[in-house]
Amino acid sequence: MTTDMPARMLRLLSLLQTRREWSGHELAERLGVTGRTVRRDIDRLRELGYPVEATTGHAGGYRLASGTAMPPLLLDDDEAVAITVALRTAAGGLGGIEETALRALAKLEQVLPTRLRGQVTALQEATSTITWESRGPRADATTLTLLAAACRDHEIVTFDYTTRDGTWASRRVEPHSLVASGGLWYLVAYDTARDDWRIYRLDRLTAPSPTGRRVPPRTLPDPGPDPAAYVAAKIATAPVRYRAVATVHATADSIRVRTWALASRIQPISESNCTVDCSDDSLPRIAQALATLDTSYTLDADPAVVDYLRLSATRTLDATGPA
């Protein structure tokens, strides 16, 4: 039982920020107090400016909603706008902090007043950043935020999805988690129509829409429960257009530190040699992956890969001039 009231209220606020809605019974169990104590603590949060709403339904509940003013987070309006825009930018692709920024963004936008949402949108639309083509397709920050909330709340969403061969169809899924890998974002979800787990690239996903229907959380199949490991395993075994496997004259550990290939695609075959599966749908990406090996290797690849590599080598030699 949490007897320290300030600590209990901070715990209560943290719980309200991690899920869209809690029943009074659930909160009482988590905090180890009575329902009456929860109601008093909710009233204290409201007095401090936190917009906690009571919900209807079986046994009733509570949720943290958008308020008419920012709750006392030691942020003024300008600071709240600046942080929200920065988090949106980071969640959209600033390397290394995407997942942390997305979690913080979901919490902040949940209580952002309507008048500030307009400022954030205006500033976002009036600014732009340089995107290098080599970084590949990027996910939309609004889509990331919507799907992050759906994963948190176990809420079914619908969207349109374009596959790698260009066909598209509507999807209805139970979102589980978001995973960032190699500059791309993936949604791990249970597809209700196919009655199976699927992985969706967010840059191929459009018109996401929450349905308002929540379902019990599902457990990932093998090699779950780690979503990142699940996505890595699926990507490593997914069908690709071009096959290219290099036998590298270097240790697997030394290759892992200088290539972006998934760890599951690097396999040791002796103390001083390993194989690296660089297979991909893109010939330029295969060439880039092989270049990062930075050591001698032999290659087992499709004829199209060999032809492309020879053409690239010829262009490089021509560009450097006579020896």
Score class of each variant (00 low, 15 high):
residue 281 D to C: 03
residue 315 R to Q: 13
residue 275 T to R: 06
residue 248 V to G: 12
residue 239 P to E: 04
residue 219 T to N: 05
residue 8 R to M: 07
residue 203 D to W: 03
residue 158 T to D: 14
residue 225 P to R: 06
residue 60 G to F: 12
residue 286 I to M: 07
residue 68 T to L: 12
residue 117 R to H: 10
residue 306 V to I: 15
residue 174 E to H: 08
residue 47 E to N: 10
residue 197 W to L: 03
residue 264 S to Q: 13
residue 273 N to E: 15
residue 278 C to W: 00
residue 37 T to P: 04
residue 224 G to C: 04
residue 196 D to S: 13
residue 103 R to L: 11
residue 246 A to D: 07
residue 79 E to M: 13
residue 118 G to P: 00
residue 83 I to M: 15
residue 206 T to C: 02
residue 323 A to D: 10
residue 138 R to A: 14
residue 303 P to D: 06
residue 192 T to K: 01
residue 138 R to H: 14
residue 137 P to H: 06
residue 224 G to R: 04
residue 289 A to E: 08
residue 75 L to K: 01
residue 215 V to Q: 11
residue 33 V to L: 04
residue 155 E to M: 03
residue 236 A to C: 11
residue 23 S to C: 06
residue 249 H to D: 14
residue 37 T to I: 08
residue 289 A to G: 12
residue 255 I to C: 13
residue 252 A to W: 02
residue 51 P to H: 07
residue 213 R to Y: 02
residue 163 T to E: 07
residue 209 S to G: 08
residue 294 D to P: 07
residue 192 T to E: 09
residue 6 P to G: 06
residue 260 W to T: 15
residue 78 D to L: 10
residue 60 G to L: 04
residue 52 V to P: 05
residue 291 A to M: 05
residue 203 D to R: 00
residue 77 D to H: 11
residue 91 A to Q: 05
residue 249 H to T: 10
residue 292 T to C: 09
residue 119 Q to V: 11
residue 286 I to S: 07
residue 143 T to G: 09
residue 160 D to S: 11
residue 312 S to H: 11
residue 55 T to H: 10
residue 81 V to P: 05
residue 133 E to I: 14
residue 301 A to V: 03
residue 74 L to H: 13
residue 247 T to Y: 01
residue 209 S to Q: 14
residue 323 A to S: 11
residue 315 R to E: 13
residue 173 V to F: 01
residue 40 R to I: 05
residue 238 A to R: 07
residue 114 T to S: 14
residue 7 A to E: 15
residue 151 C to V: 00
residue 123 L to K: 08
residue 191 D to R: 00
residue 52 V to Q: 08
residue 28 A to M: 09
residue 259 T to W: 02
residue 287 A to V: 04
residue 297 Y to P: 13
residue 101 A to T: 02
residue 107 K to G: 01
residue 153 D to T: 01
residue 260 W to C: 05
residue 195 D to P: 04
residue 57 G to V: 07
residue 35 G to T: 08
residue 80 A to K: 07
residue 45 L to Y: 09
residue 212 G to V: 04
residue 269 I to H: 07
residue 267 Q to V: 15
residue 219 T to E: 12
residue 60 G to P: 07
residue 317 L to Q: 13
residue 231 V to N: 03
residue 13 L to P: 00
residue 5 M to V: 15
residue 181 S to N: 12
residue 313 A to D: 11
residue 143 T to S: 11
residue 250 A to E: 14
residue 154 H to Y: 03
residue 108 L to F: 09
residue 201 R to P: 04
residue 304 A to S: 14
residue 303 P to I: 00
residue 282 S to L: 01
residue 149 A to K: 05
